[in-house]
């Protein structure tokens, strides 16, 4: 019994080292197999997890054990934990932008509903791609707002009533800094920060430097988004009375290839092809009709 408890805790501790995968560690793999085979061991592991304030979302040979912190758990990370640095009037705005960046990364990593369900799907996202993706959504929302009302400007001195997309659209997308680093307060800076946090927690793997940093998703990320994050956010939206009904076919079309258009050199061919960031850099080109 003690032996089993130790193994169960050991399996959980592997899960708390998010960059480790069963394919890399024999002990980890054996424990995962034991969990999948032995119902008693599975129940024991879950009991240990519950005691620690963790919820086991999924156990598989690809992703390993995926625990997440239950509410108020010491293991959960909150927006405030890493958006803390901004102060004053921008503090609330920064927190929101950081949280939105996470949502946007997931939305671009799994553009179609089917991608989230397909366990073998590997998404590819880049910093500039995510920024362009959100800005496009903002542009569409702005057009919609302009159609509905003449006075589209937000009220003065009531930042909480201002639509979230305005906050994002208003923030500079990039900027120069004295030491040639990325401007932390710009939207690309915020998105890059979100992605780096995801890399640390084993959700993304960097694959290149192009387009401000390009990453691929891991099975762990898919499980977390699918099993927990998306539902949690959706419930909040429901509570606010915002329900969007779709036909399930997905509103973002993923286009596999990119024909060379007249007058537009192939992306990356020359400097002259540089339109603004939105046009060419996303490795997955997306088109959204809202």
């Amino acid at each position: 019994m003690q032996e089993a408890a130790r193994d169960a805790a050991r399996l959980l501790s592997f899960g708390l080292r998010p960059r480790l995968v069963p394919a890399r560690d024999v002990d980890y793999r054996d424990l995962v197999r034991r969990y999948l085979r032995d119902n008693g061991f599975a129940a024991l592991t879950q009991a240990v997890a519950a005691g620690l304030g963790l919820v086991v979302l999924d156990v598989s040979e690809r992703a390993g054990i995926v625990p997440v912190g239950a509410e108020d758990s010491a293991f959960a990370m909150r927006v405030g934990d890493y958006a803390r640095r901004a102060g004053g009037e921008h503090r609330a705005a920064d927190r929101l932008l950081h949280a939105l960046a996470q949502l946007a990364v997931a939305a671009l990593a799994y553009p179609r509903p089917a991608d989230l369900a397909d366990a073998s799907y590997v998404g590819r996202v880049s910093v500039h791609g995510v920024d362009a993706f959100v800005r496009e959504a903002c542009r569409v929302l702005e057009e919609r707002a302009a159609e509905e009302d003449h006075a589209v400007d937000p009220p003065l001195d009531a930042p909480r009533l201002e639509a979230a997309w305005r906050l994002y659209a208003r923030r500079a997308s990039t900027g120069t800094t004295r030491d040639a680093r990325r401007l932390a307060g710009s939207t690309t800076g915020i998105v890059a920060r979100a992605m780096n946090v995801l890399v640390e927690s084993g959700c993304l793997v960097p694959v290149g430097e192009e387009a401000g940093g390009t990453f691929r998703t891991t099975p762990r990320y898919q499980v977390q988004v699918r099993e927990l994050a998306a539902d949690a956010a959706f419930e909040e939206l429901l509570a606010l009375g915002v329900v969007t009904v779709t036909d399930g076919a997905g509103t973002v079309r993923v286009l596999d290839d990119e024909p060379v258009l007249p007058g537009v050199p192939a992306p990356g061919a020359t400097d002259a092809s540089a339109t603004d960031a939105s046009a060419t850099d996303a490795s997955v080109r997306v088109a959204a009709d809202v």
Binding site: V68, G69, A99, Q102, G202, A229
Partner: peptide, 9 residues
């Protein structure tokens, strides 16, 4: 609400 789930432990 989305954040903690997506970022993980």
């Amino acid at each position: 609400a989305f954040f903690p789930g997506a970022v993980g432990v």
